[in-house]
Amino acid sequence: MDAAMSKPIIRLDAVSKTFQAPRGGGMVEALREISLDVRPGEFLSIIGPSGCGKSTLLSLVAGFLSPSAGEILFEGKPITGPAPERGVMFQDYALFPWRTVIGNIEFGPFARGVGRRARRDKAGELAELVGLKGFEDRYPHELSGGMRQRCALARLLANEPKVWLMDEPLAAVDLQTRIILQDELLRLWGDGVESADRPTVVFVTHGIDEAVLLADRVVVLARRPGRIKAVIDIDLPRPRAPLRSVPEVARIVDQLWSVIRDEAAMAIAEEGN
């Protein structure tokens, strides 16, 4: 319970975000008074129905957006913009199409001024680590969806960020690939290995089972405006990969589902109108 005692790495203090709707629409309240502490080294999942502001929340922590009200602190200091210490994995990969696999992976170190030799070596190691050995000189359009996601993960790892912000990273790949990538994500994060410098993960997903399997805590958001509906501790042992078919996981998924069912039903009804 050391982690719970230590100071939060990310603190959201009554964070609200309001957007101007496009084409002359009114103001849209995406998030309302979100308060949340993220503990160093924890794996936090955020779930909720579509339109609940999960991605907005992640963009705020990434520094792509700034809050309309409230404050977001990273290691005690306000977030003023994107930074390499907070790495992001985007839903649509966002690989640079004109750079090869190696070129994408080494972009972070390159941007931070690491010498050519050192960053090439590092990129090569990371390509191997995520299973892209032999594909180093391919361009993104020559890769499968799963390989693109591995490349995006390696690109994120190259900067050794303290926080991994992941926006539905596995939503666009098929089921088998998703299971494999979940396991690899856990392995790369350090699942089951107690370590002081393990990165902190904020993982946005719409898969309840994915959230339960991966996370230490699951934050459930309600929609319109996005608010925290529940924060649920997942008391499952680690490593998690072997627990995939354990009944306990299914029980927690059911419990979570009962929390968000009404919200999800409302979301479907509204979209139907």
């Binding site: 792509f64 790495g87 985007f90 966002a94 640079f96 972070g108 941007a111 900067n159």
Partner: peptide, 18 residues
């Protein structure tokens, strides 16, 4: 230009010039 690519570069530490 896809704004997500610009965000990705900024997140990786790229300066405005880069």
């Amino acid at each position: 230009v896809d704004p997500t690519l610009v965000r990705a570069a900024e997140m990786l530490g790229a300066s405005r010039r880069l």
